[in-house]
Design a protein around this nucleic acid. Structure first.
Length: 436
RNA sequence: GGAGAGGUGCCAGAGCGGACGAAUGGAACGGUCUUGAAAACCGUCGUGGUGUCAAAGCCACCGUGGGUUCGAAUCCCACCCUCUCCGCCA
């Protein structure tokens, strides 16, 4: 949420920022309602002060006539207060709705532009290898190896369902375990295992609601939603709390499934596991002091890059333009890795500084040392990394002429020393257990 | 799902419908005392809004939302949550 104070003080700046994200900015309506609301509140507060005073007087009045006269007076006052209060409530609600619809303002150093064409490449790493054969897309490789069962996935889960099988499932598990370990033991994150099913307010807190309800899954009977990312439960962890400054910064990392109701009509990326309704992700979330969030964004990006580099995946960093950034973000870097089989750049991580946008919505505050007033803190989050796309990159980058997959060095100890993924044994009866 | 108890400030814990934004104790912070510490004593000690150079003042908030009343932490209704017991269940 954008600070209403900022809208009052510098409406043009807010308008520019909002419009640079391709969103209409109803600034006049907001200001009009705000002014009207403040006038009413000032008036009704005065009336309430009168009533409080008058009511106290009633208790002290002995004379019956006098007393009755005052009660009548106060009753009329009370009716008027009730009427104005109702108006204030209505204005509050509509003002709140309008404010919830405003996206976060981009930082000043974000490239301005209408869409992804204005994104700026900020760096790259690694080399795109020359294959002495035609590299296959991951869906062919996965099918051939028997590590992803698309047919049965669709049978069970409908369109875009998939089942990781054998070494495919093991590869994902190894990735999750390894990524978590790196973030926990080397980057200083605290591990959490948050709920996947959350209350509606949590999604308002991060900015997914009310605007993007059609991209989410919701329980039919209760007001509970499936998380589209671990960012949602984690960011809301300290909602309505006032943290000591000494507790900051807080780093959390979690592995969760993510549920996204992608627009069916899109018809894009229909093959493989690039765009699916359910996937796993390791997510990093930071709670920091406002003056640190810029440096923390660089650190967050570095931490995500660390994972990509250690997997030996070539990448480029995109500084997203105002038109391509998400609703709640003030500054976002995407990390894209090259998928030689699909022949495209794949977004495997997105690292964002939300500034105090989510903190305002979720009421995340801290008390600065020596300062009385609590302040909103800043939140950041980044994927570290999204699993299906990391798997895509690994399959397509490390495929051999024989269509085997060379397991990245760092993952081998997490896969019992396994160096290659080869064709899986067919589905069949349970194998006997070693030593059993 | 059934029966009962309860939700008050950082914590514990009071609170006959007017004297309660809230007793008391503890914690924390500042100070006095002390070589230092402890103890003792004094003081400060919720959040948001409004207002102001700053303050004072004023308004709202005692799980949430309604209601009764001149006036509600206190009465009524609904919901949510916690605890105990029973049932069911992974």
């Amino acid at each position: 949420m954008i600070d209403i104070q900022l809208i009052r003080d510098d409406p043009e700046r807010v308008r520019r920022g909002v419009e640079s994200k391709n969103v209409d900015a109803p600034i006049e309506r907001i200001l009009a309602r705000d002014t009207e609301r403040r006038d009413l509140v000032t008036r009704v507060d005065q009336l309430k002060a009168d009533r409080n005073f008058g009511s106290k007087l009633v208790g002290k009045t002995k004379d019956a006539d006098e007393r009755n006269r005052r009660i009548t007076e106060m009753r009329e006052l009370g009716d008027e207060i009730a009427r104005i209060d109702e108006d204030v409530r209505a204005l509050d609600a509509s003002l709140y709705d309008l404010l919830l619809g405003l996206p976060n303002l981009p930082d000043d150093d974000v490239p301005v532009g209408p869409d992804e064409s204005a994104n700026v490449v900020r760096g790259s790493w690694g080399v795109i290898p020359d294959f002495d054969f035609e590299p296959h897309p991951h869906w062919d490789l996965a099918e051939h190896l028997g590590i992803i069962d698309f047919e049965r996935g669709v049978k069970v889960a409908g369109a875009r369902g998939y089942v990781l099988r054998g070494d495919g499932a093991k590869l994902q598990r190894a990735l999750v375990q390894w990524m978590l370990d790196v973030h926990i033991y080397e980057h200083g994150y605290g591990e959490v295992a948050p709920p996947y099913l959350v209350l509606e307010e949590m999604l308002v807190g991060t900015g997914s609601l009310p605007k993007f309800a059609d991209t989410l899954y919701k329980d039919r009977f209760d007001d509970k939603w499936l998380i589209p990312t671990a960012e949602v439960p984690i960011t809301n962890l300290y909602r309505d709390e006032i943290l000591d400054e000494a507790m900051l910064p807080i780093y959390h990392v979690a592995h969760t499934p993510c549920f996204r109701r992608e627009q069916i009509s899109a018809g894009r990326d229909v093959r493989g596991i690039k765009r699916v309704y359910q996937f796993d992700k390791v997510e990093m979330v930071k709670f920091v002091r406002p003056d640190e969030s810029e440096a923390e964004l660089q650190r967050l990006l570095r931490e995500a890059l660390d994972i990509v580099e250690r997997l030996e995946l070539p990448y480029r960093i995109l500084d997203l333009s105002t038109g391509d950034m998400t609703f709640a973000s003030a500054h976002t870097y995407d990390i894209e890795t090259w998928a030689p089989g699909s022949g495209e750049w794949l977004e495997i991580s997105s690292c964002s500084n939300m500034r105090d946008f989510q903190a305002r919505r979720a009421n995340l505050r801290y008390r600065p040392e020596g300062v009385k007033r609590p302040q909103f803190l800043n939140t950041l989050n980044g994927s570290g990394l999204a699993l299906p796309r990391t798997i895509i990159a690994i399959l397509e980058m490390f495929q051999t002429a024989e269509r085997d997959i060379v397991v990245p060095e760092v993952l081998r100890s997490y896969m019992g020393g396994q160096e290659r993924i080869t064709v899986q044994p067919p589905i069949g009866p349970a194998r006997s257990i070693q030593g059993a």
